[in-house]
Simulated scan of single mutants.
Amino acid sequence: MTPAEFDTLFATNVRAPFFLVQGILDRLRDGGRVGHPTDIADVVSYLVSEDARWITGQILDASGGTAH
């Protein structure tokens, strides 16, 4: 998976104060918000389920529509 910037302890405390970059990141995403760890957990849950049994060798963009 290729996740984008997410609202985590690393993003908020280590890289930069989150409130400074949140507005910029929100405008870059189709979903209109920064991702949360549960967003990635949902994708991983799907990938390990029987429903994803035919998905192999793919890079899954789980970025919420981040503009590159």
Score class of each variant (00 low, 15 high):
residue 26 D to H: 08
residue 13 N to D: 14
residue 56 T to P: 01
residue 47 L to A: 09
residue 52 A to N: 00
residue 36 H to P: 00
residue 16 A to N: 14
residue 29 R to I: 05
residue 19 F to V: 13
residue 23 G to C: 00
residue 36 H to T: 01
residue 66 T to C: 01
residue 14 V to N: 07
residue 42 D to A: 14
residue 3 P to G: 04
residue 22 Q to W: 04
residue 62 A to E: 04
residue 63 S to H: 13
residue 8 T to N: 04
residue 30 D to A: 08
residue 50 E to G: 09
residue 37 P to I: 06
residue 31 G to S: 06
residue 64 G to D: 10
residue 23 G to N: 09
residue 51 D to N: 12
residue 13 N to Q: 13
residue 1 M to C: 02
residue 15 R to I: 08
residue 49 S to N: 03
residue 64 G to M: 02
residue 3 P to Q: 09
residue 13 N to L: 12
residue 17 P to G: 14
residue 24 I to M: 09
residue 63 S to V: 12
residue 27 R to T: 12
residue 53 R to I: 02
residue 22 Q to N: 10
residue 67 A to S: 09
residue 1 M to W: 04
residue 45 S to K: 13
residue 56 T to A: 05
residue 40 I to Y: 11
residue 53 R to E: 08
residue 14 V to P: 00
residue 34 V to Y: 04
residue 60 L to E: 06
residue 46 Y to H: 09
residue 31 G to N: 08
residue 58 Q to T: 05
residue 6 F to M: 15
residue 31 G to R: 15
residue 65 G to E: 14
residue 37 P to L: 06
residue 64 G to Y: 03
residue 12 T to G: 11
residue 11 A to M: 14
residue 43 V to G: 01
residue 67 A to G: 05
residue 38 T to E: 14
residue 45 S to C: 13
residue 68 H to I: 13
residue 30 D to H: 06
residue 10 F to I: 03
residue 66 T to I: 06
residue 38 T to V: 12
residue 2 T to W: 07
residue 59 I to G: 03
residue 52 A to Q: 03
residue 6 F to C: 10
residue 41 A to E: 14
residue 56 T to K: 05
residue 19 F to S: 15
residue 46 Y to G: 01
residue 46 Y to K: 03
residue 39 D to P: 01
residue 17 P to V: 10
residue 3 P to R: 12
residue 5 E to S: 14
residue 5 E to A: 10
residue 15 R to W: 02
residue 16 A to K: 14
residue 57 G to M: 01
residue 29 R to K: 15
residue 46 Y to Q: 05
residue 37 P to N: 08
residue 11 A to P: 00
residue 68 H to S: 12
residue 51 D to G: 12
residue 22 Q to L: 12
residue 52 A to F: 00
residue 52 A to Y: 01
residue 68 H to K: 12
residue 41 A to I: 07
residue 41 A to N: 11
residue 26 D to N: 15
residue 38 T to P: 00
residue 61 D to N: 13
residue 33 R to I: 03
residue 23 G to R: 13
residue 52 A to H: 02
residue 38 T to R: 14
residue 55 I to W: 00
residue 26 D to I: 09
residue 27 R to Y: 05
residue 7 D to L: 05
residue 50 E to W: 00
residue 29 R to Q: 08
residue 61 D to R: 15
residue 54 W to A: 10
residue 9 L to D: 14
residue 10 F to D: 00
residue 55 I to K: 01
residue 36 H to I: 04
residue 21 V to A: 09
residue 27 R to N: 13
residue 35 G to T: 05
residue 55 I to G: 01
residue 47 L to Y: 12
residue 15 R to F: 03
residue 68 H to C: 11
residue 21 V to K: 09
residue 56 T to M: 03
residue 7 D to N: 14
residue 18 F to M: 04
residue 41 A to G: 04
residue 61 D to W: 03
residue 27 R to W: 06
residue 3 P to I: 12
residue 51 D to R: 14
residue 34 V to N: 03
residue 18 F to T: 07
residue 6 F to Q: 12
residue 12 T to M: 11
residue 46 Y to T: 02
residue 66 T to G: 00
residue 34 V to W: 04
residue 42 D to L: 10
residue 39 D to E: 07
residue 6 F to T: 11
residue 56 T to R: 06
residue 25 L to F: 10
residue 61 D to Q: 10
residue 49 S to K: 02
residue 30 D to G: 09
residue 18 F to I: 12
residue 8 T to R: 08
residue 17 P to H: 10
residue 44 V to Y: 09
residue 9 L to F: 06
residue 36 H to V: 06
residue 53 R to S: 07
residue 20 L to Y: 07
residue 28 L to I: 02
residue 59 I to R: 08
residue 20 L to C: 07
residue 12 T to I: 07
residue 53 R to P: 02
